[in-house]
Amino acid sequence: MRRINQHPILQGLTEDESVTIYVDGIPMKAIAGEPIASALFAAGIRTFRFTPRRKEPRGFYCGIGQCTDCMMQVDGVANVRTCVTPVTDGMQIRTQNPAGGEQPCAPPM
C-alpha cells in the first residue's frame, strides 16, 4: 500500500512532521497525529493480530473504533484500537498474539 500524494480533489500531502514508531521492533516513519492503522498500511502491513481461539489473522475492519478487530499491543498495553489511536514518537507497537508467542507482522506486499 502507499500514501496518496496525488489526488484530483484533495491537496497534495504536505511535509507533515514525521515521527518514528517501532513495529515488532522495526523502526518506521509515520506522520504525527495519524492513527497507528494508517501508518501500518502505508508501510504495507495489514495483519495486526492473531485471534486467541483459532489463531487467525485480523486487521482493519470498521475504521471507526467500533469493531475492535484492529487491536494491537501498544507501549505494553494490549487491546489498543489502532484505527483511533494516534501514533506518537517512539511508540512501541506489537502484533497482538495472546497465545504468547511474538509472531512478526506479515512482510510488506
Binding site: P35, S38, Y61
Partner: peptide
C-alpha cells in the same frame, strides 16, 4: 485482513490519505 467496510476504506483514503 483486507476485508473492510467501505466507510473504513473511505476514511483511509480521504482522511488518512493511505490506500
Amino acid at each position: 485482513p483486507g476485508v473492510m467496510g467501505a466507510g473504513a476504506a473511505q476514511t483511509m483514503i480521504n482522511l488518512h490519505r493511505v490506500l
